[in-house]
Design a protein around this nucleic acid. Sequence first.
DNA 1: CTTTACGTTTACGTTAACGTCAAGTAGCAG
DNA 2: CTGCTACTTGACGTTAACGTAAACGTAAAG
Lengths: 133, 133
Amino acid sequence: MTSQQTWSIAQLAEEHGVTHRTIRHYEELGLISPERRGTTRVFHRRDRIRLALILRGKRIGFPLEEIRKIVDMYDEQPGEAGQLSYLLDRIEDRRADLERRRQDIQDSLDELAELDRRCQADLAALRSPTHRQ
Amino acid sequence: MTSQQTWSIAQLAEEHGVTHRTIRHYEELGLISPERRGTTRVFHRRDRIRLALILRGKRIGFPLEEIRKIVDMYDEQPGEAGQLSYLLDRIEDRRADLERRRQDIQDSLDELAELDRRCQADLAALRSPTHRQ
DNA sequence: CTTTACGTTTACGTTAACGTCAAGTAGCAG
DNA sequence: CTGCTACTTGACGTTAACGTAAACGTAAAG
C-alpha cells in the first residue's frame, strides 16, 4: 500500500506540459524506462520523479545525454567503496558546473539591475527638469 | 586615443575559444556587426563586449535569437519615456526568467549536497564497523 | 614569383530534440 | 459488430547552431 499509484503517458504529459512524443523520446534515449503491460507503458512514481528531474535539467540547459548521467546518479546503488568515491567525484564535477552557471546568471542579474537603475534615472531626468510634477 | 584597439576574427575566436565560423554565424544572425575594411572584418571594443555577452548567454542556455534581443537592450539609446518604460518591462521579464533558472540551479545544488551527504555516510559505514582504523 | 598565412563567400552536412503524419492495436459503449 | 478513445510503432520533417569543404582574394616572406 506504499503508493502503488501509476500514470499513463497522457497523464504525465499533461501534468508536465509536454507531448507524449517527448516522453517517448526520453525513453528511446534511456532516460526513463516505464513498465509495460502488454504493449502499453505504465509509469510509476520513480518514472515520474525522473521526468521532473529531466525537465528541470532541460530548463537549466543540459543536453539530454548529460541529463541521463545525472538522473542515473540518483538511482545508483551504493555498492562498494570504489563506486562510492567515483560517484562522489562525479557529484563534485556536477556541483562545479552548476556553480559556474549560477555565477553567470548572477552576473547577468547584476548587470540587469544596473541597467534598470540607469533607465529609472533617465526616466526621472525626463520628468523632473521640465515640470515639477 | 580612447581605446582605439581593434581585433581580427582570429584573435577574438582564439580569445573566446570559438571558431571563426561561430563568429560569422553570429554576424549572420545580426548579433554582432563588425566594421569592414575592404572585405575584412574589423572588431571593435563594442563587438568584443557583445561577443562576451553572447557567450555568457549561451552558457546560461538562451537561444541565439533571445540573446540578440538581450544584447540589443544594452545598446538601445534612452530615447523617450515610452521606449524607456518598454525597456524597463523587458528588463523585468528577463530578470524573472533568470530568477527561475537560478532557482532551478539552487534546487539542483541542494539535492546534490544531500546526495553527497548520503554517499559520505555510506562510505563511512563501510569502513567503521569492520575495522576501527 | 610562388608559397604561406589569413581572410572571404557559398553551400551542403550534422547533431539534438523533438514535430508530424501514417497506420495499426486493444478495450469499452452502444 | 461498429465506432470511439487511448495507446502503439515506424519513419520522415524541422529548427538551431554550427561543422566542413570548396574555391577564391590579398599581402607579406622567402
